[in-house]
């Protein structure tokens, strides 16, 4: 199968930037990352469809020369789904901003508890100063809701 190198590079760049943004804490950036990622993935479908060709309308040209129409239909479906998802995420970011004054993705409570334990151990092992159950300068407490 012939592959269009430009498409591959564009796809890789979009997906790379998308993943980078997805790892951010702000939901708005996650959203932008998602947009980039989904566009990258959609281009991947164009790569998968193979060589570009004439429009796939019956009788307009030789079937051998036509582009494969199926991936285009799949991409259309994917675009519509992504549109809905992004609208929903935007609404959630807005709601999060209404409630918390920011749209940061909050800590997983379990995760925060585990990190807290790790933090407690580190201080008590090195200094032996803290007694159990006291966490005056815990870094997690500031962000807690």
């Amino acid at each position: 199968m012939d592959v269009n190198l430009t498409l591959v590079i564009v796809c890789a760049a979009l997906v790379g930037c998308g993943v980078y943004l997805l790892l951010e804490r702000s939901l708005t950036r996650v959203l932008v990352g998602l947009v980039l990622l989904s566009n990258g993935v959609n281009i991947m479908f164009l790569v998968a469809s193979g060589r570009a060709g004439t429009s796939p309308l019956v009788g307009s040209s030789d079937p051998e020369d036509m582009a494969d129409p199926l991936p285009q239909a799949l991409v259309l479906t994917a675009i519509v789904i992504t549109l809905g998802t992004i609208a929903f995420l935007l609404a959630m970011a807005h709601r999060s901003w209404q409630i918390n004054g920011n749209d940061d993705v909050q800590d997983d409570t379990e995760d925060a508890a585990i990190r807290k334990l790790a933090y407690d151990d580190a201080t008590s092992d090195s200094y032996g100063l803290t007694t159990d159950g006291q966490h005056e300068d815990d870094p997690e407490e500031d962000g807690a809701v």
Binding site: S38, N42, M44, F45, A78, M92
Partner: peptide, 30 residues
Amino acid sequence: ATRIRAGTIYVVINVVSSMLFLVSLAAVYA
């Protein structure tokens, strides 16, 4: 507030898995 907090994580995880599914679909089709 709690549902938005939990929902954010749920939605982002599932959106990422959907993207992964699309990548797999493109690869399978290719």
